[in-house]
């Protein structure tokens, strides 16, 4: 089929538009990556525009010599791995029964779940609950309370409903297959894609969360990475000795300030790397998962 001239112009304008969007999203990210590899002096003098100037790994070196950041990294990894495992198990356990149209308690339980999306106890009553449960300032508070998102249950449930044909269930039931067996042998193997998606969502949520740590944790050695990031990136404070350990001979305040600026850029990269590394591999799953979840939800 031949394209008309107006169509050709339309496609061209459309591509230009998408290209502009691409640049708007990509440029700040490239800029930050470039800054993180540049010489501290070039960063503060504004010499960096697109590519690193006088490339160096100084920023990264300084970060990995900082004890706080290593503590935060280990803690965040621990919270993320434990939390995600627990959350995926709970979500799948909730989603499967709720996906079964022949399950007698499906509607009342679904109602109990969805109501919490619209109404909740609020900050203080939740805090009091945690305090009554003795969870304040424990590592468990970073893992357990966030371990079930009703939204993810709904997405997973919808996925089960739309990918597991009812005939399959009926046939297995005639063969005397119990619900447990069907779930283990048929439903789970068929839903690897959705499990990958919700695992990604939960992992990102755990890795990125800072607020529960802010209100529930007091000991610095339990802090997740995001809280240390908040101190450095937002509140602009850092242990002075962390900087003087750098390779440069730091005599004047300016050099020190430059190194601090550089460190922030490197820190942004280091903190986002784990998530951004996994994401492209899992992208094809999550687009599929989100689409199935949203389409018929």
């Amino acid at each position: 089929m031949r394209e008309s001239r107006s169509d050709r112009i339309f496609y061209m304008v459309n591509n230009i538009f998408l290209f502009i969007i691409l640049i708007i999203v990509l440029y700040p990210m490239i800029y930050i990556v470039s800054c993180s590899f540049s010489n501290p002096r070039s960063v503060t003098s504004g010499a960096v525009w697109l590519w690193p100037v006088e490339p160096t790994l100084l920023g990264y070196k300084t970060i990995f010599e900082n004890k706080d950041i290593l503590t935060g990294y280990t803690n965040s990894a621990y919270y993320t791995i434990c939390g995600t495992t627990l959350a995926v198990i709970l979500t799948v356990l909730a989603a499967y029964p709720l996906s079964r149209k022949d399950y007698a308690l499906r509607n009342p339980i679904m109602l109990i779940f969805t109501f919490t999306m619209f109404f909740g106890g609020g900050l203080i009553p939740t805090y009091l609950l945690m305090s009554n449960l003795g969870l304040i300032n424990t590592r468990a508070v970073m893992i357990i309370p966030g371990a079930l998102s009703v939204y993810n249950v709904i997405v997973t449930r919808t996925y089960f409903q739309s990918t597991i044909p009812i005939e399959l269930l009926e046939a297995s039931q005639i063969d005397g297959c119990s619900d447990f067996t069907f779930f283990r042998k048929v439903a789970l193997p068929l839903s690897k894609a959705i499990i990958a998606v919700i695992a990604l969502f939960y992992a990102v949520g755990y890795w990125n969360s800072y607020f529960s740590a802010l209100i529930y944790l007091h000991d610095r050695e339990k802090y997740p990475l995001q809280l240390f990031l908040r101190e450095i990136l937002i509140q602009n404070t850092i242990d002075a000795e962390a900087l003087s350990k750098g390779q440069m001979s730091i005599e004047d305040m300016a050099a020190r300030q430059s190194l601090f600026e550089l460190l922030k850029y490197s820190l942004i990269i280091v903190a986002s790397i784990p998530v951004l590394c996994i994401y492209p591999f899992i992208q094809k799953y999550f687009v599929k998962g989100v689409m199935i979840g949203s389409l018929k939800g």
Binding site: L90, L93, A94, G122, T126, V150, D179, F183
Partner: peptide
Amino acid sequence: LTLMVILPLSFIILFHYVPMYG
């Protein structure tokens, strides 16, 4: 199926409904 859902359900009741009492 109830046995499967009981753990997530208690979870929701504990962390979402108990605070409503507060």
